[in-house]
Design a protein around this nucleic acid. Sequence first.
DNA 1: TTGTAAGCGTTATCAT
DNA 2: ATGATAACGCTTACAA
Lengths: 360, 360
Amino acid sequence: MKNYGNVQSKKLRRPLLKDVAERARVSVGLASRVLRNTGSFSEASRSRVLNAAEELSYTPDAVARSLKQRRTKAFGVLISTIMSHFFAPVVRAIEDVASKSGYAVTLCNTDYDPDKEQSYLSALYERGVDGVIVCASPGNDAYLKKIARAGIPVVLVFRKVPGLDAPRITTDNADSARRAVSHLIELGHRRIATITGIRGVQSSAERLAGYRQALLEAGIALRDELVVDGLYDEEASFEGTRRLLDLEDRPTALLTCAETMTIGALYAVKEAGLTVPADISIVGYGDPSWAALLTPPLTVVRHPHYQMGLLAAQTLIGLVEGRGGDDKTTKQEIVLKSSLIVRESCRSPGGVAGSAENAG
Amino acid sequence: MKNYGNVQSKKLRRPLLKDVAERARVSVGLASRVLRNTGSFSEASRSRVLNAAEELSYTPDAVARSLKQRRTKAFGVLISTIMSHFFAPVVRAIEDVASKSGYAVTLCNTDYDPDKEQSYLSALYERGVDGVIVCASPGNDAYLKKIARAGIPVVLVFRKVPGLDAPRITTDNADSARRAVSHLIELGHRRIATITGIRGVQSSAERLAGYRQALLEAGIALRDELVVDGLYDEEASFEGTRRLLDLEDRPTALLTCAETMTIGALYAVKEAGLTVPADISIVGYGDPSWAALLTPPLTVVRHPHYQMGLLAAQTLIGLVEGRGGDDKTTKQEIVLKSSLIVRESCRSPGGVAGSAENAG
DNA sequence: TTGTAAGCGTTATCAT
DNA sequence: ATGATAACGCTTACAA
């Protein structure tokens, strides 16, 4: 049997349930039940339907199913940008968990822009996603609440939304910053600067609060000129650090609150011809694999980002699938612990080394 | 007017087009036309419908629309993992372009696993995505062709699929490796090793080919023991580099074909107590912002990943929306140029410095 | 056990 | 310019 041009190029229609049913000589209802393994049917029908589906290589149409079932098996995930080492592991974990349970993940990069956040949220709403995970953002509380009130489960990561009764996964941000600064204080530092992220972002605000708390506990006065807005941006952090280093009474230690900002700060130090930790001690955030390759290896605060995404996704699935009215899932707040990885980028302002625990 | 508990907490049904129509006292068809600004209607109806929609804060249901229109305004993107610096910018660019045109992006992490790739592809197919972008993977050609034959536009990034007539965005992989190795040869190196990714992955294979070509052009014999499988993995690369350094006749230079592998290699060098570039010269791939922070600043090959994602998404949108039968879009292959960023991690095996162009 | 038919919320055709 | 009405492909009562 030959295939002539016309025949071969004819686009063949995707097989429908109707086709499967016809081929198996049963009704569509029965075919559907067999394929979904629900309701009742005879063994004979079962095998005929299964065979027919196999032969036609039938695939159900998820759109039609979603319309009927009123759920899409899809989540939306909002982050500032997937290029950030801060969010990539969170998203990866979410996608891992989601896909294992048959959910698709729609990625939304908001760049910390409330307008973008809102437009993504409304797009997700229109698309009927079954749930949304919102990560650290200074976004629009009102819109988020609207989504939640419309019945779409929301899980918050890092972010807190007053008046929104949604589970939240976060870390001991304030405490981690407090411990980092205390570490510096114990080494003898008094003039400790910090590069903060975006003020409106929860995690950033918390870290700044922890920084302040540590100073207050040690009876060290807070000085505004030692707090610089780094905006989670390498360039801004570079400039900010420059200004710090130009200060008459230069800080002897620096806490940078995100990986990009650590890089910016290190460039500024390098440009100024200064040395870490001889001239200035540095604690960074995030624990990229290159941190221990630097000279000197960097002391950092490490947060369990993958774990956060894991929990966020699991929580969301619980909310979507189970216990809808269960307060336990709705009201929970999970706070994960961070760790301070002491390497060699900090020492006493006098000159005594801080520690030597290395990770090479 | 008071809101009593029951009334307030009653979950209100999402407003439908029918509700808008009723409120505007027109038919649903007319309401639909007004909202989509298609077909004909009077100015009077127009404003009534618009007002009604506004008052009810009506949002169309994308699922129902998709079912009717047979398109979802969604793309699927397959990459090995979003945690890779290789893919993050590609995905970011794709999402940027897609969202601007109203497309949602579903993220799929395949880990270079053909089974995962296939199951994601079939999930995307079921969901009826309007197009798919597949990045560097050693996946299942047969399944990809099936998807394409089913009429779903596919754009390839890095990957080539023989017999699949899909546009492809790639870089001058082979040539970039060739130039990097030539650079080392010019410095006087003869024993040049390379850490390669996963053999089945197009970009990896091409880079390896470029490495070989450079050696052949220089009349240097290829030696199997100088080619190590790094599997895009830091650990594997660490072990592989260790073996290279243990070789009786140790290589004097090393080309690592991905960022993770560069890191693994650098740790091995550090662990062996050797120095770059005094004991061994290194050229890495990717240009992370920390590369110039290392001591010495790293010489690398930089590929325009964001740009690749941009073009991939634009190409896909063209395919989906426009010129469906246009051969120009279907058959194109775009090859982007890479650049060799010379810093200070390479010098002559004797001891003369290679270059001093720094990016601090 | 099986089939029929009524939705799910739109869009689009076709009379009026 | 407008309004019925039939799809879109599937699920799910309900009737047989």
